[in-house]
């Protein structure tokens, strides 16, 4: 199954011809993490919506790339 998905992705990539080698292992681990992290983001989104409902929502996280 893993190889099947990877094969598709490599096919997908080879059509787009990235100039960097993304490395097969680096694609695969992203797929492994995808489920986990995608679920995390969804949860966070819903949680912040729930908080907003109760007027306790935070502003969007700053993402100016500078820590502190």
């Amino acid at each position: 199954m893993t190889f099947y998905i990877m094969g598709q992705l490599i096919e997908h990539f080879s059509n787009q011809r990235p100039y960097l080698d993304p490395s097969s292992g680096s694609i695969l681990i992203q797929l492994l993490l995808a489920g986990l992290l995608g679920a995390g983001i969804l949860l966070r989104t819903y949680w912040s919506r729930i908080l907003k409902l109760f007027g306790r929502g935070k502003q969007d996280q700053t993402d100016d790339g500078e820590d502190e």
Binding site: F3, Y4, I5, M6, G7, Q8, L9, I10, E11, H12, S24, L28, Q30, L31, L33, A34, G35, L37, G38, I41, L42
Partner: peptide, 17 residues
Amino acid sequence: SGANGSRESAGMSQPAL
């Protein structure tokens, strides 16, 4: 690893990325 596939893959959704 370099297997070939033929169908478009759903791969990684934007929320996952």
